[in-house]
């Protein structure tokens, strides 16, 4: 019977390599989902602040729905519906169906969920910008896009960062839910390894350590980034 460390060895018969590959999948989905979620959030925040009444209400429906329905339900729903919807949209514009990879579907699902939360975080951050700064930019005749890039984005970031940091940490943990739809991320491969070897404790603990390491490293980096961003801002 192999001992704990043999089981976690990087090359077969150890399962460490499989675990790390799953971990890499988790990270990819988290980064991709969070990145797209930010884009959705940015568009959503602008829509909520500057959009017409219909846009505002539709966005309110989106953010309320996503925040009130369990992530697991959303993930299962979107995972199955996502490819259908995409192919429907493609056939409307006259393109043939495409195969959606598991990774692509996973990123899409996480992005839609995180996009709703990011919308709220970014909206709050934009609202925290002193109106005078935006008015001044307008007075100088800045185009909306230029103003967004040069004024709103940099001014809002320090306000948005704490909320976005939380979202990132939540995203990394939400990727575990993709195990339920059979995406080979860390939690699923851990269960496969545990089931195959019957050493449930060792593998679940090992996966826990990996997740914890990701969280703690992220915390450290984000705190540094936040300090840098806050340079030149009034204390408090």
């Amino acid at each position: 019977m192999p001992s704990g460390l043999d089981l976690l060895a990087l090359s077969p018969p150890g399962w460490g390599g499989v675990l790390l590959a799953g971990f890499w999948n988790s990270i990819q989905v988290a980064v991709g989902g969070f990145g797209f979620g930010l884009l959705i959030g940015m568009a959503g925040a602008c829509g909520k602040l500057y959009g017409g009444p219909v846009t505002k209400d539709l966005l309110a429906v989106y953010t309320t729905l996503v925040r009130a329905v369990p992530e697991l339900v959303l993930i299962v729903l979107l995972y199955f519906a996502g490819a259908d919807l995409l192919n429907l949209a493609l056939s409307v514009v006259g393109l043939g169906p495409v195969n959606v990879s598991a990774l692509g579907a996973g990123i899409f699902v996480i992005a839609v969920v995180q996009g709703a939360y990011a919308t709220e975080v970014l909206r709050g951050a934009i609202q925290a910008i002193p109106t005078g700064q935006i008015e001044a930019a307008r007075a100088y005749g800045m185009e909306p896009f230029l103003m967004f890039r040069r004024i709103i984005l940099p001014a809002m970031l320090p306000h948005a960062l704490p909320g976005l940091s939380n979202l990132w940490l939540i995203t990394t943990k939400d990727t575990a839910l993709l195990a339920v739809v059979g995406f080979a991320e860390l939690t699923l491969v851990t269960r496969q390894a545990a089931g195959a070897t019957k050493h449930y404790f060792i593998f679940f603990c090992a996966a826990g350590v990996l997740y914890l390491a990701l969280t703690l490293t992220s915390n450290l980096l984000l705190r540094r980034f936040e300090l840098r961003l806050r340079r030149g801002m009034p204390a408090g």
Binding site: Q28, V31, G32, F34, G35, F36, L39, V98, N99, V100, S101, L103, G104, I107, F108
Partner: peptide, 14 residues
Amino acid sequence: LAVGMTIAALGGAN
């Protein structure tokens, strides 16, 4: 990078 990765992921299995 995230956008690029996803497009690659979406198109990869074709």
